[in-house]
Every structure is written in structure tokens, then in C-alpha cells.
Simulated scan of single mutants.
Amino acid sequence: MDLPVPSTDALAYSAALSDHIAREIDAAGGWIGFDRFMDLALYAPAQGYYSGGAHKFGAQGDFVTAPELGPVFAQSLAAQAVQLLRLGSPQIIEVGAGSGQLAVDLLRELERCGSLPDSYAILELSGELQARQRQAISAQAPQLLSRVRWLERLPECFDGLVLANEVLDAMPVHLVVWKSTGVVERGVAIDNGRFAWVDRPASGRLLERALALAAECDMPPGYLSEVSLAAQAWVAAWATRLGRGALLLIDYGFPRREYYHPQRSSGTLMCHYRHHAHGEPFYLPGLQDITAHVDFTAIVESGCWAGLELLGYSTQSSFLFNCGLAEVLARTPASDGRRYLPLAGAANKLVSPAEMGELFKVIALGRGISEPLLGFSSGDRSATL
């Protein structure tokens, strides 16, 4: 792979995490599931990708998320937030707030339209990211910092809006291969001092889910893909805690029959390092992001089985236009090219089918919401799930 060369310190950081993972593999008898490898690579305390100190978001990091493109994403999203705060409770929890830019822009827009929540909590496990989020809010919206608090675990109960942008894709996944002889789980072992793929028969809950998927989808022998039991459990856990309100989840993925399409026979696992995308998860653990697309059908099933209602499902493009993206852009005169052109460029990336507009989806699950949601007023694709 032709990727940027890390610094000496970064290589040492990755080597330390690799040693940590290798010791865990040894302690587990020589093999761990890929879900555990991914969990350690991303979240091992003080060593994982999201736990360490490297820049991850924006031009100086490894990838760009919607909030990093500019304020138009949050300014459009705010219209949906206002409705949900009115229908539920005036509280927001943002999960995995990244650089903190979404919190900054969303709070500023809610302040502009007189709809600030009573509290804005950020659920963030990384102390390093908490510090960066606090710094971003302090620098760009200091008058709103007092409304923000940080959580390290899910609350016991909550009424209001739970917002998660690009969170589900970073949850650990199992790798599964459907063979003519049965279902196997692809895991990680050590071979000559290097991480290596080793398959073992799938068992337990994973085998149950894999067999159910095979009964529903056409998977030829040798078909490899992901099963995200963690994302399903996460949604179900919120369902036991949410009173009146909604989960608003934004991520890239497909309905199940598209996700497990026969032609998508190598899965969706992808790694991101310095704005280069590749498929080698063993490359420099701790220095790169590891993601998988979201099976949105599984997300809906988990939420609804746990008592939530599907409130809407659409492309990011439809959702943002329904929420007033065009009106947000119109606030800045097109004649003011210095200000308008960056906003228009960001908007194009957010809604273009060739960029984020079609691949990224928005899904809402809730309880006690008494009217249709603005973001899904046209272009709702719930029937495809």
C-alpha cells in the first residue's frame, strides 16, 4: 500500500498497542474474534485509535465528517432538533461528538432561533476527545459552555433527543463467512509475529444471527460480511432508557437486502488513514480508523423489538432538504462569493449522490412522538427496510 509514512513516535505508539493485542490473543488461547480486535484497535484505554491523542477529524486527520465541512449541516439539522425538543423534552445527548464541531454549530443555531435545550450532554468515552470538545465549545461558543456536560455511560433514563452522527459504523463487528460446510467466524491469531486471519466455527448468538441472515438473503458459498451485534445491542440499550423522545442516527449503510447483496461478497470493512481508504485492518493498529457500513434493517429490528417506533428513514440528501438546507444557504447572498462559495461547496458534498447524499442515511426511532417528523416529510424510505 502506498500510504503516508508515520513518524517514529507514531510507529512506537502502534507497536505498543500491537503488543497489547498480541498478549490478549495469547491469553485467550491464541485466537480472538475480529470484533475484539477492532474493539482494542479503536478503544483500548490510552492506546486505541479513539483513545489516543492523534488528530482524527478534518483536513489534518484521517477523514472528514459532515460537521467538519461547515456549519450548514448542523444549521439544517437544527430544524429537526427543534421539533423533537418540543415533542419530547428540551434535552439533547450527542453520542461520540468527535471534534465537538457539531455541538458548537448546533448549539449556536438553536440559540439563534431561540430554541436552546435546557441541557446538552455529550456521551464520550475518550478523555482526550472530551478535552478537544470542551476546547472547541469554549473557543467558538463560550456563552453556551455552561449548558454542556459530559457523560461516560448511558443514563438510566432520558427524555429528549439522542443524536449520533457516524457512531454506528465504528462499533466492533464480527466477520462471518458462509461456507457450503457451515458458518465460520473469521478471527485473529499470531503467525510468525504478525496478525493473521484464522477461521473457527461460529457459535452462540453470532451463529443464530448468521443462519437467520442466510435464510433471508442470497449468500453464495464463501460469502464474507459483517454482523454488528454491538450496534444492535446499543440501540436496544437506549430503548430501555428512552422515555419520550427519539434516537436520530446518521451514518452510511444500506437496508439488509442491499447490505447482503450477492455481489457484495467481500463485506464493507474499510480503514481510513490520512485520507486514504484501504481494506487492511492489521495495518498500524491505533493509527487508523476501522469501520463497517450499517445494516439499517438490523437497527430498526433491535429498536422495535425493544419497544421503540420507527419514525423515519431517508437519505441524508432528502433529510437535509426537508429540514431547510436551501433556506440555510439562502441566508448568505450568492453575490458574497467569499462566504457563499464554501457553504455551497459543503452543501454539495452533503447532498450529492456522488458524495454523501445517497450513501449516508438518517433514521429516527422513538417513543411518545405525536406527529410526523419534518426530516422525513418527503423521500421516506422506511418501506425498503
Rank of each mutant, 00 (worst) to 15 (best):
Y273S: 02
K56W: 07
G30M: 10
A344N: 03
L311Y: 14
P142S: 09
A44I: 12
E156M: 08
W234Y: 11
Y223N: 01
M171G: 01
G357R: 09
Q316H: 09
F37Q: 02
S146C: 14
E280M: 11
T268D: 07
A131P: 02
Q143E: 15
E355S: 13
D169Y: 12
G366Q: 05
A214H: 11
T65M: 01
V351A: 11
A236Y: 01
A131G: 08
H272Y: 15
A66N: 01
A212R: 15
A306W: 11
I363D: 06
S378W: 01
S317E: 12
C323W: 09
A212Y: 08
G243Y: 07
P353R: 07
A170S: 12
L248D: 06
G286A: 08
Y13G: 06
Q140M: 09
V188P: 02
G29T: 05
L224S: 03
A12K: 09
S335K: 14
S378N: 10
D9W: 07
F73L: 03
A298N: 00
V227Y: 00
F319Q: 00
Y120D: 03
D159L: 01
R205G: 02
L373E: 07
R339M: 10
G98E: 08
L308Y: 11
P333Q: 13
I21V: 09
A354T: 06
Y273F: 15
S317V: 08
R331C: 14
L359M: 04
F282A: 04
W31A: 08
L125I: 14
L168P: 00
A196L: 04
S14T: 02
P117I: 11
G303F: 12
H272W: 13
K361C: 10
T291C: 04
S317C: 12
S378A: 14
V162H: 06
A189Y: 00
V72Q: 04
R112P: 03
Y50F: 15
